[in-house]
Design a protein around this nucleic acid. Structure first.
Lengths: 362, 362
DNA sequence: TTGTAGGCGTTATCAC
DNA sequence: GTGATAACGCCTACAA
């Protein structure tokens, strides 16, 4: 083994390269390379000798050299956002974990970076131009978000989690929010509820609007919309708002027997308000949230769960053909398959817990 | 510019290298390199020409080539853990963000990976041997954790967040847990409380034991330990346990007027139990948690906040001299400074909210 | 002050 | 079936 340690201590001492393996096995470097990348081209006994040498040295190909040679870092970039203080909705860490696993499944790595919103796009540009990452996953893309357009202009491959409203020019995956709230509404209807309230975000966020739409259309299908139309209130995502708006609903002459919220954060507020006026959640009032945060589990709150693991896998699969090192050794793309579907909606699932499990008394 | 696009589409088309800049500026590649790495060696007018060319082409040095040349990827590896379901304590995402920022401040990147606990160490080995990362940050290191020893044996530089109990052979940073609970206890004493309960984790977790110790020694200093010694209960980290144990305390003939919990998760349970028996938290019972999770903010729960941003910076600073590309261009370490301190304790701060702000009535 | 040469580790191409 | 050659982009000598 070439001893290249320049006196810096133990950490760099044992960098073993393909040449070391070749020397031990008594073959050339290329034969070692072939054993790893095209084993069929090597005679079995030679291969065994080489494999033994690899094993004994613990050789692993140097990633930087591979990246330089292949013009592909096999790295995906993902921006992490700061933790929000007033909202419980930390969906991000579940998605991050799922994304890391999905990316590892295709022999890539996940590089995360924090950006100061000012020069967000310049960070993307730098990571792309320096070849640090091959592609990006854009998270939290909402109505009118400029970032997909910007990254597209950079020429960097990417896939978005979420939609801007005009997404035909790039890959995206999103939750079918309306299907989620529709499932929740159906569940409540099946439990005998006829007055089902909705506490949502202010109009204009695509996500919030779609969740509201799922509630609305489902009630309509069951002929309940007329008696529930006035049970739709909106506020920013905060527990206090959930409590405040729920109080308004519960003070109505004909209060709802069930309340759906656009997020767990608001739903927790609803539960607080119910308890404050002596109602037992799950018996006197059904509550359903959205996101299935740890908090929902802890408070036995029914909630719509986003299939984040599936989203991550779906995103990575969509990205795969656009990656330079993409499908193993294939030229990544024959010219024809350009018109594949660019978008995909994934249906969430309802997790029923004590807050909505019981049927209405009458 | 060398057009190297092998028909794969737009994404790889615009890879601009140092040779392109040199051609435009009418100098050799090395002069361009000098402009970037040793500007003083270049005549001002030449430098300006080169800088203009760099600007016009948007040139950025290729990271893989730099890594190969420098034998340093300028990447730090960090393992992310899956989200826990029963616990609210998502300290991880706050730390992750802080770590990303700290790492970026020294011109490195953060690579995150998920591991299946079985072959955790083999992942570390692979990342190290392939040169994918230069060093690791080990998080959640507790009493007797084998990982620092394993990574040490790999020869990979690393720093641990947390302590195993025998940490003299590696870098570590940890929260001064006892100082955190001591601050909380002093705060409660100052508010007039004399019966202050503690709900902790079962003995044996270093972290939990140290937090308990902070409570105990502070009460002792104020001569309150005798009357509080029986107010120390333990259970696994779950809201339900917090509620159950708090109920036990509140059922005592002389119930506490304040309860500290070893985590926000348990503290939330305490708040639930208090409310369930008609007590108003903050008036009839003071409650303090630990970790300052978003949940604490939402429920107005006083909590001890870990200085995760400082931990991240401290870890990165400690790691810096061990990094191959460490202090700019210095040989990373003259042989002498080997006996620098390897460990560091950081004091948390108490965030006072409504759950404990008021003085006791009498 | 600027340019020339060589090599970091890997792999694709093409001889043999 | 195996080995020599070259190139990916950069940087550190050293030479001019």
């Amino acid at each position: 083994m070439v001893e290249r340690d320049s006196g810096r201590g133990d950490s760099v001492a044992s960098m073993v390269s393909i040449a070391d393996v070749a020397a031990i096995a008594g073959v050339s470097r290329q034969t070692v390379s072939n054993v790893l990348n095209a084993p069929h081209r090597v005679r079995p006994d030679t291969r065994q000798r080489v494999e033994a040498a690899i094993e004994s040295l613990g050789y692993q190909p140097n990633r930087a050299a591979q990246a330089l040679r292949a013009q592909a870092a096999r790295v995906i970039g993902y921006r992490i956002e700061p933790v929000r203080v007033d909202s419980l909705t930390t969906v991000q860490d579940r998605f991050l974990h799922a994304l890391a696993e999905a990316v590892q499944a295709i022999d890539h790595h996940l590089l995360v970076f924090a950006v100061d919103p000012d020069d967000e796009i310049s960070i993307y540009a730098r990571l792309h131009r320096t070849g640090t990452v091959d592609a990006f996953v854009l998270d939290g893309i909402g109505e009118g978000d400029p970032r997909p357009g910007q990254v597209l202009r950079l020429g960097a491959p990417f896939a978005a989690f979420g939609r801007t409203g005009h997404d035909s020019d790039h890959l995206w995956v999103d939750i079918d929010d309306a299907a989620g709230t529709a499932a929740a509404a159906r569940h409540l209807v099946a439990r005998g509820h006829r007055r089902i309230g909705f506490i949502g975000w202010p109009e204009g966020s695509g996500v919030g609007d779609r969740r509201a739409a799922g509630w609305r259309t489902t009630l309509d299908k069951h002929g309940l919309l007329a008696e529930c139309a006035d049970l739709d209130l909106r506020g920013e995502d905060a527990v206090a708002n959930g409590a405040r708006l729920a109080a308004v609903l519960l003070d109505r002459p004909q209060p709802p027997t069930a309340v759906m919220a656009v997020s767990d954060t608001l739903a927790v507020g609803v539960m607080q308000a119910a308890r404050d006026r002596g109602l037992v959640v799950g018996r006197d009032l059904a509550v359903v949230g959205f996101d299935d945060t740890p908090t929902a589990g802890v408070f036995d709150l029914s909630s719509v769960r986003q299939p984040l693991e599936a989203v991550a896998r779906c995103i990575v699969r969509a990205l795969l053909p656009r990656l330079p090192a993409g499908g193993s050794h294939a030229p990544a793309h024959p010219e024809e398959a350009t018109s594949e579907p660019v978008g995909r909606l994934l249906a969430p699932t309802l997790v029923v817990r004590a807050s909505s499990a019981a049927a209405t008394p009458c």
